[in-house]
Simulated assay, not measured.
Amino acid sequence: MVGREKFDAELQQVQNLMYDLCDTAINTLNSAMDYLFANDIEGALTIINNDIHINRMEEEINDRVILLIAKQQPVATDLRRLMVLVKAASDMERIGDYAVNIAKETIRIGKDEHIAPIHLLEEMRDKTIAMLKSILDAFINEDIEEAKNIAKLDDEVDELYGHAIKTLLSVGVEQPAQLSQVTQLSFVCRYLERSADHATNMAERLLFLLKGKHYELNN
């Protein structure tokens, strides 16, 4: 195998690892929310215990990229792709961290009955997961238009976030005894909103990869 073919094969392996990391992080976030809705403490504990796998996947991507740069001395366009993969992997590792944080809030809530607005959290989860799946598809297909559409979904998540926080604050005023759960669910809303922001970050990185210039989609 000649040098360029070897580089392309190893680059594809790194890309496939990044896709696997995306899929794992998305499923982990989705599961963490399922466990929250079900008051499933045991399930939440599995999210925390399995976080090391996502961390190791990101570390492997970083290590392989460093080796590729050191051994192959990639040209500028290849180097840009490698840097985008590293940053996208970091975004997905953070989403895994948010899943862990949600799991911790689930454990703190325990078996207590949920206060409103769980339906808003369900909507936030669904839109956030849709965003993450969309950006994964956009990366796989190198789809510029799908990447650009991420910003529209992010606006919808932001709107739901604002509505959910206002509703939770109202519950806290009306039911002071529920203030602890109000705080915990507010944190969950924030973790979902931040996960959506990372999807937007990834969309901007993909556009940089494909177009060669920086875009700010959430402005």
Rank of each mutant, 00 (worst) to 15 (best):
I26L: 13
L210R: 10
L68M: 08
L207R: 01
M57K: 03
R4G: 11
I47L: 05
D78W: 02
D197T: 02
D97M: 15
I165F: 05
D97Q: 08
Y191S: 00
A130G: 05
I66H: 04
K213T: 12
M1D: 15
D143V: 13
P74E: 00
N27C: 15
V84A: 08
L206I: 13
G172H: 02
E145R: 10
P74Y: 07
I118A: 03
L11W: 05
G110C: 12
I109L: 08
L206S: 12
R125N: 02
M18Y: 10
I54W: 04
L136E: 06
A32E: 06
Y19K: 10
I41T: 04
D40Q: 10
E42P: 11
S195H: 07
I69Q: 01
F208D: 14
A89K: 03
A164R: 02
N27A: 15
A89H: 04
A103V: 11
D34P: 14
D20V: 12
M18F: 12
R80H: 07
I109S: 00
R81M: 13
K87N: 08
L179A: 11
L120S: 04
C22Q: 15
H198M: 05
D78R: 04
K104Q: 10
D126E: 13
M92K: 05
N149T: 02
K133Q: 15
L79I: 10
S186Q: 01
T106F: 03
D23Q: 12
L209I: 08
E204W: 04
P117D: 12
A25C: 11
I52V: 08
R64A: 07
F37G: 05
L207V: 03
D63K: 15
K166F: 11
E174Q: 11
E10S: 09
A116S: 04
D158T: 09
N201R: 09
L206N: 10
Y98G: 03
G110N: 02
N149S: 15
L153W: 07
R80G: 06
G162A: 07
L21W: 05
M18D: 10
N101Y: 02
V157A: 01
H214G: 06
D143I: 06
D158H: 07
V157F: 01
N27T: 15
F7L: 13
T167L: 11
D137F: 13
N62M: 12
D197R: 02
L217I: 03
S186V: 07
D197I: 00
K211I: 09
V100D: 14
D91K: 09
I102Q: 08
A203K: 13
R194H: 02
Q12C: 07
A99P: 08
F208E: 06
D20M: 14
L132D: 05
L36I: 07
I129Q: 09
H163A: 14
Q181C: 10
D51L: 12
V2L: 13
N218T: 07
